[in-house]
């Protein structure tokens, strides 16, 4: 009614520099993880002398390739605000399945897709329970974990050796670049990280993952495919567990039912240390990669110290707690605003 008297009041412009900073706030936790990694490497170098060497840095990737893959899948799940406790067991199961099939002469090109399908099936079951039946994620995935772990023993009670040259080659082939080296497992893991980063950043599915984690209700009101996304993240995590099963089998040259007990905890710890909020909605895959490297450095340092291997879990636990408390404080502050 008073359209004529309307004044064009421009919104106050905030300086570009502040925008730059503000936009990068979500990267701060990743940066924190990088800083921790660097400090640990520097401290290790100062204490042990020969610590930051190409060989050791290479081995960080080679020894933890499976964990990088698991962490990538877990990042999807945690970004939606869920959790997947089944990854360690599913990894062990797919490894067992592969070892068993290959020992009966099934060729690797058939076995490998089967591993991924098995992982996807576990993810699908968990996802459907979580979304369609409102089962809490940790219960659903705990059930998935037990199912997978039990099925391992159905496949075989004993460890099964793997002799397939294609699978073993993933680990044994070393590509040297001076003192640096990589194995095909590392290449697979890093390609997966790059691919998954792309998916999270440049597809509607990826952005919906963030949206669901930010506020599921809002995402639904915006008309996004919440149901599909929530189920799919568990499938992604399951497939990653399948790939990790392949890498781990190559690494240990055997399928064994007790493989990867507690790995789900290492994975969650790596993802959280890498800056992904457990409440969902914030985090980056590259952070999870850094988180895995932090885990790897802790493990190597403890070996170097000659200390008990159990210190690894304790240190990781303390680090996880520290990060969770800091996250909690950040979230509480954000809510007060």
């Amino acid at each position: 009614m008073t359209a004529l008297t309307e004044t064009e009041r421009p919104a106050p412009t905030i300086s570009r520099w502040r925008h730059f900073l503000v936009g990068k706030v979500a990267w701060m936790p990743v940066l924190a993880a990088v800083v921790i990694l660097v400090i640990m490497l520097v401290a290790g170098q100062a204490y042990f002398g020969r610590f930051v060497t190409p060989r050791i840095l290479s081995s960080l990737f080679v020894d933890n390739a499976y964990l990088i893959v698991l962490a990538a899948g877990m990042t999807f799940v945690i970004l939606t605000g869920g959790i997947d406790l089944s990854v360690g067991a599913v990894m062990a199961f797919t490894g067992m399945l592969a070892a068993k099939l290959m020992s009966t002469g099934v060729p690797a090109p058939v076995v490998i897709p089967l591993m991924l399908i098995a992982g996807a099936a576990f993810g699908l079951i968990i996802g459907v329970m979580v979304h369609y039946f409102d089962v809490q994620p940790f219960i659903a995935s705990l059930a998935g974990m037990f199912l997978a772990r039990g099925l391992c023993f159905v496949v075989s009670l004993e460890a099964i050796q793997v002799k397939n040259p294609l699978v073993l080659g993933l680990q044994s082939v070393k590509i040297n670049m001076g003192d640096w080296y990589v194995t095909p497992t590392v290449i697979i893991a890093l390609l997966l990280v790059v691919g998954a980063t792309w998916v999270l950043g440049y597809t509607r599915f990826g952005r919906t993952v963030y949206a669901v984690g930010g506020n599921e209700q809002s995402a639904r009101l915006m008309g996004l495919h919440v149901a599909r996304t929530k189920v799919l993240v568990y499938v992604v995590s399951g497939v990653c567990a399948g790939i990790a099963g392949l890498l781990f089998t190559a690494y240990t040259a055997a399928g064994y039912s007790l493989n990867g007990i507690g790995t789900e905890l290492d994975t969650i710890a790596a993802v959280v240390i890498g800056g992904t909020l457990l409440t969902g909605g914030s985090g980056y895959l590259i952070g999870s990669l850094v988180g895995v490297l932090v885990y790897g450095v802790i493990k190597v340092s403890i070996t170097f110290l000659g200390a008990d291997a159990s210190w690894t879990r304790i240190t990781i636990g303390i680090l996880l707690l520290a990060f969770v408390v800091v996250q909690r404080v950040i979230v509480a502050r954000a809510n007060r605003r």
């Binding site: 969650i268 710890a269 159990s310 210190w311 879990r313 304790i314 990781i316 969770v324 909690r328």
Partner: peptide, 22 residues
């Protein structure tokens, strides 16, 4: 502190066996 129960107890689940081993 107000941490979700799953996560709060997950920390001890993770570190507890390490402590027992120590």
């Amino acid at each position: 502190v107000g941490i979700q129960p799953i996560i709060a107890t997950l920390v001890l689940m993770l570190a507890g066996r390490g402590i027992a081993l120590l």
